[in-house]
């Protein structure tokens, strides 16, 4: 029975609507109601922004340390070095994001090619 349901064409769309759209947008709506009363210069907002920033930073380090897909096959030190290099170039270029990202990518790909050639 359950299998029959799972094989209909519309079942994935129900999943996407309920488990995807609703489960995601509900947090945005809650954020609208909870954030509507915050003052732009208040201490509470500073704390909320700290929480949000730390969360996003957590996403960043997870993506680098525990990546999905093929990037997981690269050595950890290469990913860390590429990121650190990109961040350093970002600072050296007076905080131009594009330059930093490009530098990290260049570092990753040259390291990867080098490892492939050696291995």
């Amino acid at each position: 029975m359950g299998d029959l349901v799972a094989e209909t064409w519309w079942w994935p769309y129900v999943m996407i609507l309920v488990a995807g759209w609703l489960a995601t947008d509900i947090w945005r709506w809650l954020g609208v109601f909870a954030g509507g009363r915050l003052r732009e210069d208040g201490e509470l907002l500073i704390w909320v922004r700290c929480v949000a920033t730390a969360l996003v930073a957590g996403v960043i380090s997870k993506l680098i340390l525990f990546p999905q897909g093929v990037l997981a096959e690269t050595p950890l030190w290469l990913r860390l070095a590429a990121t650190a290099f990109g961040f350093a170039v970002f600072f050296a270029s007076r905080q131009r994001v594009f330059v930093g990202v490009l530098a990290a990518e260049a570092f990753l790909i040259s390291g990867w090619l080098l490892l492939d050639a050696l291995g």
């Binding site: 995807g20 489960a23 995601t24 945005r28 954020g31 609208v32 909870a34 915050l38 922004r49 996403v59």
Partner: peptide, 17 residues
């Protein structure tokens, strides 16, 4: 999915003001 999306709430809150 909801657990992966909790971050959207404080983010939206911080943006509202």
């Amino acid at each position: 999915v909801a657990l992966a999306s909790v971050r959207l709430m404080p983010m939206t809150m911080a943006l509202m003001p």
